[in-house]
Amino acid sequence: MAGTPRTDTEQLMELLSQSLSAYYGEFTIAAASENLTASQGKVLTVLRRGPAAMRCLASTLTCDASNMTGIIDRLEKRALVRREPSASDRRVKNVALTAEGERVTDAIRAKMHATRDGLDRLSDEERDSLHALLERVFITPPAS
């Protein structure tokens, strides 16, 4: 549209910051309702994608490996995750969700009403566009 100012990178970064703050605030409350810390909830969410090595989890959540061990110990004690040997390297332990871990992860997401309501207001086309844009910004590596 002619005459409409373009949104600059700083404005987008601010909107992303506000959006992520709202999302993680709601996520933290939902995780707490399941007697989990936000970090424990994040681990379950990451494991929803599939089993992962402890080192990979620490890297993904940008925390120290020793901290990750404590988080996994507490989740394992509640039977939300299990450690299993890696198929490719027996020295490595992968962490996987249990059925109870999947149930808790689903319960956390189900309690995120503001996020769900916001996404539900989008049309199918808008959802597809948002998905493609988020993937492009955060998932797809830049071309070399």
Rank of each mutant, 00 (worst) to 15 (best):
A22T: 09
L61S: 03
N67A: 08
R48F: 06
D106I: 06
C63N: 13
L36Y: 08
R48W: 06
D128G: 00
T37Y: 05
A107G: 08
L47E: 06
L57H: 05
A52P: 01
L15P: 00
R74P: 04
G118C: 05
L75A: 11
R83V: 02
M1F: 02
K93P: 00
A22P: 00
L97A: 04
R136D: 12
Q18V: 15
R103D: 11
T140S: 05
A30I: 07
T7P: 00
L15R: 13
E135Q: 07
L133A: 13
V81H: 05
V95I: 15
L119G: 01
A110Y: 05
D73V: 11
K111R: 15
T140Y: 00
F138Y: 15
S144N: 08
T45V: 03
G101R: 02
D124G: 09
T9S: 08
L15Q: 15
S21P: 00
A52G: 02
N94D: 07
I71H: 04
D8G: 06
L61E: 03
S17G: 11
T140R: 15
A87W: 04
D64H: 09
T62V: 10
A107E: 10
T45G: 02
R90H: 04
R55Q: 07
A53E: 11
D120G: 03
S88W: 09
S33M: 15
R74Q: 14
R121A: 06
M112E: 09
T9W: 02
L57G: 03
M112G: 06
P141K: 14
G101E: 04
A143V: 11
L16C: 06
G3A: 05
P85Q: 12
A96C: 03
A53H: 01
R121H: 11
E84C: 03
Q40S: 09
Q40N: 03
T9F: 01
T28E: 15
G101A: 08
G3E: 10
S39P: 00
E14W: 05
L134N: 08
R116D: 12
A65I: 11
M1H: 01
V95P: 03
K42M: 14
A31W: 05
E26S: 03
S66A: 13
R55P: 02
R121C: 01
P51G: 06
A132V: 04
Q18G: 06
T98N: 08
T4H: 02
S129I: 15
V95G: 03
L15N: 14
T98V: 04
D8N: 15
R109P: 00
S59L: 04
A52M: 15
L97H: 09
S19E: 12
T9K: 07
A52W: 03
Y23V: 15
S66M: 11
D120H: 09
L36N: 09
V46Y: 09
I139F: 04
E84N: 01
F138C: 10
Q40G: 07
R90Y: 01
H113G: 04
F138S: 13
R83E: 04
R121P: 00
R48P: 00
T62R: 10
H131S: 11
G3H: 13
E126M: 09
Q18Y: 08
L134G: 10
M1P: 00
A30S: 12
N67V: 03
R55S: 10
L57E: 02
V137D: 01
M1W: 00
E100A: 14
L16Y: 07
I108V: 11
L12Y: 13
D124Q: 11
R116E: 14
L16S: 12
L97Q: 11
I139G: 03
R116A: 11
T140K: 14
A53G: 13
K77P: 00
